[in-house]
């Protein structure tokens, strides 16, 4: 619960602390994020604020139903739109068409960052699940990166569900929790968090207050 910001990963760099230690940081462009719709219990069955980010400059490429939706909110069309479930009090703080301030986060806060991880294609068990593979010597024959046994014999007579096997890896929603906000630049719409975030450069991100630090 609670509103967050939408952003775009610009890349990583490093900055120096006062004591000379180097901090790896991810630079995220957050905002300008605008409220594109407010959903309430009476009409939609739940409370939520819909937020848009990354204005589309070529308006002619936006289809008419979408354009109508953004026109209603009084904003230009956005490429990345997400909903945040909010409480009644939060509902009153934001108006449709208004910008969500970057002051939502302060330096030193902890945030959860959600993105789509880089796709790795069809990956074997060594890459996908961290299996060790088979020994490289002592007579191993054509069995170097295999996963070994996947079950028993007549009992149980089947392979259990959830068995770790090769398959598609990456390109799915990943959340990294408890990243520390190192720096905020209001004028440049830039947020810097300590550590890495999911996805490639220019990938879209959802940034929310850290769930595990809310009560503290």
């Amino acid at each position: 619960m609670g509103i967050g910001l939408l952003g775009k990963k610009l890349g990583m760099t490093q900055i120096f602390n006062e004591d000379g230690t180097i901090v790896p940081v991810t630079v995220i462009k957050v905002g300008p994020c605008k409220v594109t719709q407010k959903k309430n219990v009476e009409k939609d069955g739940y409370n939520a604020i819909q937020v848009g980010f990354d204005e589309i400059t070529k308006v002619k490429n936006v289809n008419k139903p979408l354009k109508g939706h953004f026109d209603k909110a009084g904003t230009s069309p956005m490429a990345f739109v997400k909903e945040f479930r909010v409480t009644d009090e939060e509902m009153e703080q934001y108006e449709t068409g208004n910008e969500i301030p970057m002051e939502l986060f302060n330096i030193g806060d902890f945030v959860d960052v959600t993105g789509t991880s880089k796709g790795k294609g069809f990956a074997g068990v060594v890459k996908r699940h961290g299996f060790k593979g088979a020994p490289a010597s002592h007579g191993t024959h054509e069995y170097f990166r295999h996963g070994g046994s996947i079950g028993q014999n007549m009992t149980p007579g089947r392979t259990f569900k959830g068995m770790k096997m090769p398959g598609h890896m990456g390109n799915k929603r990943v959340t990294v929790q408890n990243l520390k906000v190192v720096d905020i630049r209001g004028d440049m719409n830039i947020l810097m968090v300590e550590g890495a975030v999911p996805g490639p450069t220019n990938g879209y991100l959802i940034i929310k207050k850290a769930v595990k630090k809310l009560g503290k």
Binding site: L10, G11, T13, I15, F16, V27, R185, M188, I190
Partner: peptide
């Protein structure tokens, strides 16, 4: 390298 990151890095140089 992104221009923004370039700018941010220049500040710390």
């Amino acid at each position: 390298m992104n221009e923004m990151i370039d700018l941010l890095e220049k500040e710390h140089m």
